[in-house]
């Protein structure tokens, strides 16, 4: 089975599961006693939000896949980080996260897609936080190959045995209790593929996770 077929099957499976739960919740609501109604309605709305989240994930993944859809230009990578942080403003406030951004270079790439990439990585750092408020460090360093960016957090980390599957679509490490479509890191990989870059997770210390990615240098770098 090729990757696209697997992707479609998983997407259909998850959407069908969401529809099934929503339908059953609606039935439950019809028959629910007065005191049960609020809980069942909350369950129904939660199911709808989950389906919406999945559709957003699929749409972003599809956008990342489109080879002709990338508008490559020179821009300051700090603006992509700024966009990402603006989108995550609510989560940053809610979690009390401290975000530090180092000096970031000018790069060639699609600013919107790279903003999506930073949003996924920073968003994960907030989502998989530990008992302390998240502390996220974003930086870049020059290497012969280009620029290596890193997003480092103090969260729950990722066990080494699960790292090989992290960038595959729909390979979630957490159940429905943690929000997410299961497509975030797969989308990041696709965005980097389109930029001839690559992404990986660093062998970390005792806690937290560091995601790094490299973007090839452009002429004049």
């Amino acid at each position: 089975m090729d990757e696209m077929q697997r992707f479609l099957q998983s997407a259909v499976h998850d959407l069908r599961a969401g529809l099934r739960r929503t339908g059953i919740s609606a039935e439950l609501l019809l028959h629910a006693e007065q005191q049960e109604r609020e809980a069942v309605a909350a369950q129904l709305l939660q199911g709808l939000a989950k389906s919406e989240e999945l559709l957003t994930g699929i749409s972003r993944y599809a956008t990342a896949l489109a080879p002709g859809g990338y508008a490559i230009q020179l821009f300051s990578s700090s603006s992509a980080v700024r966009f990402a942080l603006a989108h995550l403003e609510g989560e940053i406030r809610e979690t009390g996260a401290k975000i530090s951004v180092g000096d970031l270079p000018e790069i060639a790439g699609d600013r919107d897609r790279l903003a999506d990439l930073f949003e996924h990585l920073i968003g994960n750092a907030l989502k998989f936080r530990g008992s302390h408020p998240p502390a996220v460090e974003i930086g870049a360093r020059r290497v012969p190959e280009g620029w290596v960016f890193s997003v480092k957090d103090n969260g729950i980390g990722i066990e080494p045995k699960y790292r090989d599957r992290l960038f595959m679509p729909f390979r979630r490490l957490h159940g429905a209790e943690v929000p997410g479509s299961g497509l975030g890191l797969a989308t990041c990989k696709r965005i980097l593929d389109a930029h001839r870059g690559r992404i990986w997770i660093e062998d970390g210390g005792p806690s937290g996770a560091t995601f790094s990615f490299v973007l090839p240098a452009t002429d004049g770098d």
């Binding site: 919740s25 369950q43 159940g175 429905a176 209790e177």
Partner: peptide, 9 residues
């Protein structure tokens, strides 16, 4: 089962 809605059912 990872989905609480299905656990409930």
């Amino acid at each position: 089962e990872d989905n609480d809605g299905d656990v409930f059912l």
